[in-house]
Design a protein around this nucleic acid. Sequence first.
DNA 1: ATGGCTTATAGGATAAGA
Length: 274
Amino acid sequence: MRLVTWNVNSIRTRVDRVLAFLDRSGTDVLAIQETKCRDDQFPTAAFEAAGYEVAHFGLSQWNGVAIASRVGLADVATHFPEQPGFAKAAADADPDTLLDVAPPLEARAIGATCGGVRVWSLYVPHGRALGDPHYAYKLAWLESLRTAAKTWADAGDAVALTGDWNVIPLDTDVYDAADFAGKTHVSPPERAAFEAFGEAGYTELTRKFLPEEHTYTYWDYQQLAFPRNKGLRIDFCWASPALAGRATGAAIDRDERKGKGASDHVPVIVDLTD
DNA sequence: ATGGCTTATAGGATAAGA
């Protein structure tokens, strides 16, 4: 089974490019992030015409996650257990006035069982800045996900946690680590929250097969980042113990960043035996 | 060329991204 994750940065803008990728890549399951639309706006018919079932979870123009599969799509979940919510208004307000009003859930996780694998398409919160409420939200989100992931691993489930993790795990995963000093994505708490999945028994499959330094999955739209190869490695696939041994390879489709109308992220591919 | 941000929005200044 070929499993791909791709932050498409608007599915409505990118649908032709995504369908062309599916057509040529042999993808069985595509985990999509940043669809930037509501469920009723998602181009479901185009995916179905290409032979894929789709589950999408989108609440507004922000975030939005989906799974497209041609090997089955069952038991869809639009959040993981204890997934925290976030609201700017709530974050800005006096905590004492919030009492026990829970911040709303964001569309950042969707899970489905595809071809015998429990696939989660994940869009980890950005964090915005160290000390920002969104940064605390990011760490809490990752901690809750790790707790859930540990229970799945302990149950022996074949789980793929694949998506845009918004963490740069190593200094060699960024064009210039000095440029990110004091910013999000590289802070020790974020890196620890990411590596905690390894401590929970998971294996990051793209690192296993693509260990070369300065291997990127994202290039900013600004300042000629792609022609200058000023990229980041932030899209990953963590596999549970029951799944990791089935991995046979990984690839990053760098060519997808070329040309007009590219997303700022490229597809990240892993191959799994049945 | 791989080229100096891009996307969405009760619709154009703002929020968000990394």
